[in-house]
Design a protein around this nucleic acid. Structure first.
Lengths: 273, 273
DNA sequence: CGTGCGCTTGAATTCCCTCAAGGGCTGTGG
DNA sequence: CCACAGCCCTTGAGGGAATTCAAGCGCACG
């Protein structure tokens, strides 16, 4: 039962293909942008596990696309504990910032060995003219913000049992969007300590809840392989709404059998005076 | 012991003065921008308590400055519960969005009767040239994001006792920045149910923790008046770091006697390969 | 004068935490 | 090759934290 994560060190052709699929998730890349990308992909970086790639409060580095491995956005507390805000999966970008100050609001640290490639042109794409790259950059920014709000709801209003299910579903949908789900299984290279720091519970309790999910036949694990045996009922259990932005959205929604978002009833009417 | 909130319905001269001070918190407004503001202030809106000003997922309305009263950013859950993401205080702006899609990521609902004024020109100021209004708009956006992250840390890593102290300190610092703190006291027009929905705990427990804080001589209440009797030790208790952006920052930091932020040790070095 | 809302308090229960100990696997050094 | 340390996972026991249910109070409002 090996929980360790070993980068597969694919050849750069495989990485290029993955990067191209990642950036064109929303719509196809025109040839000139694709060639920009291929040029950038000459440059592949590897990072050790536990390295801090961006420090909280520091100016962000140029945007980078994760090709392999996982990272977390986190804050370290005064007493040594940490809170994880969200995860960076293959196909995600870090170092993107929409604010003029360009300062990171939380640290980015690798949770596994990680392979990335810098995409300096994405920084300009944010404020540049319309295009697939701009869409992709904003998609990444929105995903981070939406994930942050989901995290608040998880931590504020759900039990440990629900939180874990909710997070596993998030992983499932996001990995599916980049083609990293086989059937109902995906590779989850996180220690229980990392899960605990994200869910706001203790490591021991994380373990117990995982055992419970197995007993309940909701999940199955084999090493770092995680299988969700019934995403439909899991989504129902925790009122999981796949954010409308983790594409392919229609597909994810369908595969989860989630009832379409109930319409919000009241919109701001006129002021009452 | 009246917890209700009654708008004072000041005359528009008072509101103009407050609005001017709010928008020039960071640096002075040049005359032409000030006159823009004064023109906008012809238009004053009042809202009832509990009104939904912006619906989640809907396009945001034009930016509005809160002149009086409090509102919350929240999400309603399927089972009727809600989670509050953060608060809008007098001097804050809602309806600002830095994203091109201009879609609200959470609902904005009044927690008290509320008085606001639309500031349509702020929407353009975000992406316009440098200026005091642009600074102010981004200040508001950064404040929301920073508050969201603080909320995650509160919910994930603090006890109910710590969460409440942390939130009260946030109110204290933010209200102080707009001149709404008298000595150590401020007007807190929120029901315990609202506090509970923000802190992720039950109403009953919110009440108990409030009682405890009174017994510990940390706070004192009289109706909706809240007095923090020892902000210094409160800040030490919960490791409260006033975000560097709730101005007047130097003043707030000094008045809380918070040790200056410890330097983060490691910054991204070169990739290990 | 009753009704409703918000605050307050008690009792029982559930959830989650800490402490503690043990087991399996990996990498290292003798 | 074996011994050992370190890391992670696992499980038990006990205690503390927060929840739910329930009842009662005070005040504002109609």
């Amino acid at each position: 039962m090996t929980y360790r994560y070993r980068p597969e060190r694919l050849d750069s052709r495989a990485y290029r293909s993955f990067a191209l699929r990642s950036l064109s998730r929303l719509r196809g890349l025109p040839g000139d942008e694709a060639s920009l990308l291929f040029q950038a992909l000459q440059n592949i970086e590897t990072w050790r596990q536990g390295q801090e790639l961006i420090a909280e409060g520091a100016p962000v580095s140029p945007p980078r696309l994760v090709l392999e491995g996982w990272a977390v956005r986190q804050r370290k507390l005064g007493d040594g504990r940490r809170q994880i805000f969200g995860f960076l999966l293959p196909g995600d970008v870090f170092g993107l910032c929409s604010r003029p100050d360009n300062v990171a609001m939380c640290a980015v640290t690798t949770a596994t060995p990680l392979i990335s490639t810098p995409l300096p042109f994405l920084a300009e794409a944010i404020h540049g003219g319309p295009g697939a790259l701009k869409d992709f950059a904003w998609h990444m920014i929105v995903q981070e913000e939406a994930g942050l709000r989901d995290q608040v709801v998880r931590l504020g209003r759900q039990s440990a049992h629900e939180r874990l299910i909710h997070l596993l579903l998030e992983f499932y949908v996001r990995l599916k969007a980049v083609g990293m789900v086989n059937g109902q299984s995906f590779h989850l290279p996180l220690s229980q300590e990392v899960l605990a720091d994200a869910l706001g519970i203790s490591v021991v309790h994380t373990n117990r809840v995982l055992q419970q999910l197995k007993r309940e036949q909701l999940i199955e694990t084999s090493g770092a392989q995680m299988t969700l045996r019934d995403t439909t009922s899991m989504a129902r259990l925790v009122d999981y709404r796949p954010p409308a932005l983790w594409l392919p959205q229609a597909e994810a929604q369908a595969s989860l059998k989630v009832p379409s978002c109930s319409s919000t009833e009241t919109v701001a009417s006129n002021p009452s005076a």
